[in-house]
Amino acid sequence: MKRRSWPLLSILVFGYAFLYVPILLLILYSFNESRLVTVWSGFSLKWYGELLHNRQLLDAAWLSVRIAALNASVAVVLGTLAANALVRHGRFRGRTGLELLLTAPLVMPDVIIGLSLLLLFVTLQQTVGWPDGRGFSTITIAHITFSLAYVAVVVRSRLARMDVSLEEAAMDLGARPLTVYLRITLPLIAPALLSGWLLAFTLSLDDLVIASFVSGPGATTLPMVIYSSVRMGVSPQINALATLVVALVAVAVVIAGLSMRRR
């Protein structure tokens, strides 16, 4: 087991190259003066400048960030509740049903989720008059619906690994159930809550298909803008945007890594 085999190592290297080369090239070409990917005509930041003056794109990005943040916050609450239910409430009636409802959104094709939610919103609007028009709220609801399933997976595995006797000890020392949850359980699953939040935030920021279905006139998210510009072919502005996203993620990962090491 200690000896590394060459075929295995080369597949590993190839795999990582496969995952990273496209992104690295994207970053590289975001600094290219020329619009063409085949020609390197010199270092330039002009695409970043254009990006920052692209009103439509910035508006969409702001909308997406707001949706993503609200989505992540609600999804963390609902996903944590669901994880509590599955880990702490044993064999309740309807457990299998809840498990099913929490697994299905993880694999369900986006087109189906998007279409079905749109039909629900339309029907609800016709019968109860809500939601009044589609946009921010309908996209957020749609995103929460699949994000909460991801959060539940993350929080559930953390909760399941947690020693139950910690909660019992707290109760034995006189803490009521709510105090136990706030002072013992929550601090101990906090890392999972944070990664669940970030995951839900990213999933929302990334979604094109579902948002396209349930959005209404006037509500255009960032992926929708990217999609319409990408359909036209390679766009250096999108390269610049991709680079910013990668940089942001890298910074977040480094911070997370450092804070974990300090512990």
Binding site: Y16, L19, Y20, P22, I23, L25, L26, Y29, L36, V37, T38, L198, T202, L205, D206, L208, P223, I226, Y227, V230, G233, V234, I238, L241, A242, V245, V246, V249, A252, V253
Partner: peptide, 26 residues
């Protein structure tokens, strides 16, 4: 390193291949 790309936009990662695979691509 496996999870990292997952955090960057899916759309953008698919898009990256357009520039790579084009007839006059990389």
């Amino acid at each position: 390193l496996i999870i990292l790309p997952f955090w960057t936009s899916f759309l953008i990662r698919v898009y990256a291949w357009i520039g790579l695979l084009n007839a006059n691509g990389l």
